[in-house]
């Protein structure tokens, strides 16, 4: 442990270095949230070949469910530590059901329809979720509770709330740590799932060639439902993490992160799981850097400008596969 602190100290001995490291950590934290959302986008795109614009709003629903579940829970003292975890689990369950339901009702009947029709339907679903949230939970912002804190007592016996851990001159909040760790865990789990399990392999087969997959005995509809379930479950986790870091919850909370994560997915090469991870992280770091060193108001413009440049140099994204058109 000591050498880490020394290393951090050496990095942060200058004021600029300390700032830089802080920005990098914040960027990775924000980028992890984008990455989790982008994973959902990219998996759905890979298998259903559709841009699921309602994905951002599933994040918002997840955050609201988490918020209400956490507030409704009155657990006795020793179990209180588990409350955030249970709230997130509730959000994951609700969003998974929601995602599968949306797929069954709105997208499945359009399997054979032109992709623009599916796109418009996804936009309709997005409007629906936003307005339903507006009716259910009103437009007044909810302040998301601070989940990831450690409550303890100090030397004088007074209770204190710890929000961050001190590493040399850098303080890292628990939210940041939890966000980064969950992103890495999710990424590793997804890599294992799609690479090693039968269902994951079925998923990859479907995204490669649906007709051939069906001939091999794979239930294509069930596989697509599963993809939506996983994507929406991830969106719920992303919603809880996003709102823990930026605790202002309104019915449109999900739309901008949704668009950003969508660009992150394209940035990394849409359809590619490591691509979404890399794209999300880079986009987050880029955004924080643009905010810190260029301008807060123009940060979005800078992020999108970089995206355009990347796509011009590598038209299929960072890790996307180039598909050669046959004549």
């Amino acid at each position: 442990m000591n050498f880490i602190i020394q290393f951090v100290n050496s990095l942060t001995s200058g004021g600029g270095g300390y700032q830089l490291l802080n920005h990098i950590i914040n960027g990775i934290s924000l980028g992890s949230v984008y990455a989790i959302i982008a994973l959902g986008y990219t998996m759905v795109y890979g298998i259903a070949k559709m841009l699921n614009f309602a994905h951002g709003d599933v994040i918002m629903v997840g955050a609201y469910v988490c918020f209400y579940a956490f507030n409704a829970m009155k657990l006795p003292e020793p179990l209180a530590m588990c409350a955030p975890l249970l709230a997130v689990c509730a959000a994951v369950v609700v969003c998974t059901l929601l995602g599968v339901g949306i797929e069954k009702l709105a997208y499945k009947p359009l399997r054979a329809a032109p992709s623009l029709a599916v796109l418009i339907t996804a936009i309709g679903v997005s409007y629906f979720l936003q307005n339903a949230a507006l009716l259910l939970w009103s437009s007044s912002p909810k302040v998301f509770p601070s989940f990831f804190v450690i409550r303890t007592t100090d030397a004088d016996g007074e209770s204190v709330v710890l929000r961050s851990v001190q590493l040399g001159a850098v303080s890292i909040s628990y939210v940041t740590i939890v966000t980064i760790v969950s992103c890495v865990v999710i990424m590793l789990w997804l890599t294992w799932f799609t690479g090693r399990t039968k269902m994951g392999k079925a998923m990859r087969a479907c995204s490669e060639d649906k007709a051939a997959a069906q001939l091999m005995g794979i239930d294509v509809n069930a596989t697509i439902s599963l993809t939506f379930a996983i994507g929406s479950g991830l969106a719920a986790i992303a919603g809880a993490l996003l709102c823990s870091a930026y605790p202002n919850l309104v019915p449109t909370t999900g739309s901008m992160p949704g668009i950003k994560a969508f660009t992150a997915a394209v940035f990394g090469g849409i359809g590619s799981i490591p691509g979404a991870f890399l794209g999300g992280l880079l986009l987050g770091v880029l955004e924080i850097f643009a905010k810190a060193y260029i301008s807060v108001q123009l940060s979005d413009a800078v992020v999108f400008a970089v995206l355009i440049v990347v796509l011009l140099v590598k038209p299929t994204g960072l890790l996307g596969r180039a598909i050669r058109e046959k004549v």
Binding site: F262, Q297, L298, L312, P315
Partner: peptide, 25 residues
């Protein structure tokens, strides 16, 4: 116009956002 399909779509989206950010400032 050098790009195709969804990549073209995302770049037009990006330009829309850039124009919005510029006129906002």
């Amino acid at each position: 116009l050098r790009l195709n399909g969804d990549y073209l779509a995302i770049v037009t989206l990006a330009f829309g956002e850039i124009i919005k950010a510029i006129f906002n400032n």
